[in-house]
Design a protein around this nucleic acid. Structure first.
Lengths: 136, 136
DNA sequence: TATAAGAATGATACTCATTCTCAATATATT
DNA sequence: AATATATTGAGAATGAGTATCATTCTTATA
C-alpha cells in the first residue's frame, strides 16, 4: 500500500510523524496495539508522543485505512483494512492471530439475520483456541 | 433459575447482597453492564457498593453461572449462561440484542479451524446492524 | 453462649488504556 | 512576512475495572 497516495486521496495531511506511524503499522505482520506501535515508533523517533499515535490511528480508522480489533486482551489492536472481509483464529497461548475467510459462513449469517428481520451492517467472528504449535 | 440452589451447588455462600445482585441480573431481560446493574441494585439497597457488584459478577462467572460479553460499547455485559451456546445480533441504534443459534455455522467454523490445524476452545460471533423496528 | 478465625463488605485508592487540554510548533494562506 | 489554521507533545483527566484495608458479618470451636 502506498501511504502517500492513500493519505492524499483521503485528504489527510501527511506529516513526518503520521508517515512513520502509518509505515510502522502497515509494515508489521502482527496486529499491533497502540502501546506496541508507540514503542516501535519511539525507537525510530523518540520525540513522537503517545497521543499522536492514538490520534493517527483514529484518523486512519475514520478514513477506512485501518480497522480496530478487540481480541479481549485489554487493548485494541489495529490492522490494515483488506478489501476482502476476514475473520480471526486467535491462539490463547502464544497470541498469534490467523486470518481466514469463509463465504459460506457469511451466507449463513445473512440467512439467520433475514429470519430475524435484521439488517446486518458488519460482523465479527473470532475463534479462540490453540494453534498447531501450541496445542502439542 | 433457582439462585439459592445454584449457589449452594457451587459452594458459594449466598449473602443478601449476592442474592440481590444475582436476582437483579438474572431477572433482567437485557444484557446488563456492571454500572447498570449497580444502579438497579442500588435503588433496592443503597448500601451495596460497586465493588461488591464486580466481585459477585466475577464469582458467578468463575462458577459458570453467567458469561461476560463485550459488544464493543466500552463496558462488559453479563448474561446467564444457557446450556446451548448462542451468538448475537446487536442493533446499532436501539442496542437491543437478539440471540440466535445456528449449528451449521458452528460446524463450518470447526472445518475452517481444522484446515488451519487450530484447536478451537470457544468462539464469538456478533452481527451488528439494525433490528426490524430500527431499520424502517 | 462466648469467642476467636475466616469470609464478605464498602469506601476508596489505584491501575491502565484511552482521550482531552493547552501551550508550543509547524504549515498553509493572504 | 504576517496571520490563520493544523498538528504536536506533555501531561492531566477519564472511566472501567481491580486491589487494599478496616469494619462487619458468619461460622466453627471451646
Amino acid at each position: 500500500m502506498n501511504i502517500e497516495k492513500v493519505f492524499v486521496e483521503k485528504g489527510i495531511s501527511l506529516t513526518s510523524q503520521r508517515r512513520l506511524i502509518a509505515e510502522t503499522l502497515l509494515n508489521s505482520s502482527k496486529h499491533l496495539g497502540a502501546e506496541e506501535l508507540f514503542y516501535l515508533v519511539h525507537k525510530k523517533n523518540p520525540r513522537i508522543g503517545l497521543a499522536t499515535v492514538y490520534r493517527t490511528l483514529q484518523i486512519m480508522r475514520e478514513n477506512g485505512i485501518i480497522e480496530k480489533r478487540d481480541f479481549g486482551d485489554g487493548c485494541s489492536r489495529y490492522e490494515d483494512r483488506k478489501d476482502m472481509h476476514h475473520d480471526h483464529l486467535i491462539c490463547m497461548k502464544c497470541g498469534n492471530v490467523i486470518e481466514f475467510d469463509e463465504p459460506t459462513i457469511e451466507n449463513l449469517q445473512m440467512k439467520v439475520a433475514e429470519k430475524k428481520r435484521f439488517k446486518v451492517v458488519t460482523h465479527r467472528l473470532e475463534l479462540f483456541g490453540y494453534c498447531n504449535k501450541c496445542s502439542k
